[in-house]
Design a protein around this nucleic acid. Structure first.
Lengths: 340, 340
DNA sequence: TTGTAGGCGTTATCAT
DNA sequence: ATGATAACGCCTACAA
């Protein structure tokens, strides 16, 4: 509870503006929202009065009265992960000038935190919701269903979405990379991912890795599968552990974060040639991977387009242009570089 | 304008809850906001009714009625810049459990966009505002003054803040790094920064560089000062240009973004020894700089603490615990590593 | 401890 | 084209 003590919001006054302009508040409201519905003369007077008093309309009151909202809520698992930046930019770009405001929140990869944030957004009566995760607490699902507001999920192409879904298949992407590495001649392909416990993307990627191995008739070797916390240091540790083992891999596929770069830096330190000693592949087209020596083979995912399309389908629904519960697969692409 | 078409928010009903619980709406309101002010028996009944109807309170109405808000607005220049992540995390950590919601927006390094966002936040009647930039349009300043809400700026220790200020001195930090490089024996120290036009931090850093040179009795050489766009590629280009010139530097101080890492990667590609051929220093303690080969000398800035303290002083003011317009200098630290 | 009346600032609706 | 009136859903203030 905001247990305030004096934090009252500043007084505002459409009335005051109306008096100064010599009109009724209703006219001010109209002049502000749809200038064409009011005579030029009045519009001028209203605009001047607005400027004179420094009037800033109260959206709380407006939204309450109109039963309509101009804010869209976005929940990401972690803002410290730069992967979300392009998606957010995509959303922003579409929302800019639409009259809708974006409210971003960070649930820290926690389902409970996500539930709380969803509650807060629903309490704020947001017009629509964008969730990066595709798994949610039961309570969260129930609330969202009851609220009946449009929702887009963006984390991965998962079955049974709450409402709309705009993403790519983490499973297929991981699978494709493993097949790619195999095609390049690598035969012992290790897989390193972030903890899959609270992360549907990680799980999907692991499933994709397994699927590829199965297709290739290769047996899964538990010693080649690692789960590491995020961060460059983890990548370094993983490569050391894997290459120090009795039956080391000839390629490592890092399906998360900046792990692959961390591994490469460790190889540089130890003067292990890449890909001579081991090949390295990553999962996301972050700038760094293109600039390392050698540059790192990775997947290009449609991060920004996910943001754009999500915002578009959400607006379509909010503004009544569509009733469809669309599911959009935006695909992915393999970027072959020097590290493999 | 949200030019809707059917995006009406779902109906909500404190009244309905009240009827189910056999009490007045007022009692429901109280039971929800301060459970101690209501008898145990009623509280139970109300809680059950809330669950039964899946009631989510309408904060719009609540905030409007109480003239109080539970959201805090935060505007950063660019969410794609990972530097803001720790600050945001600091803010989140303090706000978590405070009952206040954080609303994040990205102004894309544009003063006009910032003005628009400030307007939107004020229209939303946020309880407080956190701005990373310390320069704002005149209109924005005027609005904020009129609104009279607590504001914290966090970008740099600048004179004449709007209200409160929690940061470090970009000027002093840049100056300190130049003096440090000089102490290490470097005599031709180049300076590469992001475009200073829309960025008070960049400008301050450049001033710090100049101040240091002046103190050292060194003359500023225009050929050693570069302004580059953000990104690893820019750092690469900068190092090539500087080292290819007639009078190359023996050290380069990159005062922005990931420029220094880009430069290091370029040196690796060209097999220019660092620091043998040229020493490299950076401005921010991002993870990558610790893991490159060699690791890069840089400044550690109190990013997360800036977030925490900002949130704290803002809450102190919002909740009436303080009237002070505090200015907090959180300092910085030089991290000497292998690149210099 | 609980309820009643009135209003927060805006917009929908219906008149004029 | 403009205005009067009644909500929107909740909370403050006071009364019971």
């Amino acid at each position: 509870m905001p247990d305030d003590g004096g934090g009252r919001t500043a007084a505002s006054r459409m009335r005051e503006v109306a008096q100064r302009a010599g009109v009724s508040p209703m006219t001010v409201s109209r002049a502000l929202r749809d200038p064409t519905k009011v005579s030029d003369e009045l519009r001028r007077r209203v605009e001047e009065a607005v400027r004179a008093v420094g009037y800033v309309p109260n959206r709380l009151a407006g939204n309450l009265s109109s039963m309509r909202s101009n804010v869209i809520g976005l929940i990401v698992p972690g803002l410290n992960n730069s992967l979300y930046a392009p998606t957010i930019q995509g959303v922003s770009a579409v929302l800019r000038g639409s009259g809708f405001q974006l409210m971003i929140a960070d649930c820290g990869y926690s389902g409970e935190a996500e539930e709380e944030l969803i509650t807060a957004f629903l309490a704020q009566r947001v017009a629509g919701l964008m969730l990066h995760d595709t798994r949610h607490t039961e309570a969260a699902c129930a609330m969202i269903r009851r609220a009946g507001l449009p929702v887009v999920e963006t984390g991965t192409l998962a079955p049974g979405p709450l409402d709309m879904l705009v993403s790519y298949s983490n499973h297929d992407a991981a699978r494709a990379m493993v097949l790619h590495l195999h095609r390049l001649g690598y035969r012992r392909i290790a897989f390193v991912s972030l903890p899959a416990a609270n992360n549907d993307r990680s799980r999907e990627r692991r499933r994709g890795y397994r699927a590829a191995l199965a297709e290739l008739g290769a047996e899964e070797d538990a010693r080649l599968v690692l789960e590491m916390p995020p961060g460059l240091a983890s990548g370094a540790e993983a490569v050391v552990r894997l290459l120090g083992s009795a039956a080391p891999p000839d390629a490592i596929f890092f399906a998360g974060d900046v792990l692959a770069a961390g591994a490469l830096f460790e190889c540089q330190r130890r003067e292990w040639p890449v890909p001579g000693r081991v090949a390295l592949a990553a999962f996301d087209d972050i700038d760094m991977l293109r600039h390392t020596v050698p540059p790192i083979t990775t997947l290009r995912l449609p991060r920004e387009e996910i943001g754009r399309r999500s915002a578009e389908v959400l607006l379509d629904r909010i503004q009544g242009r569509s009733e469809e519960r669309v599911v959009v697969d935006l695909g992915f692409e393999i970027i072959q570089r020097g590290s493999t």
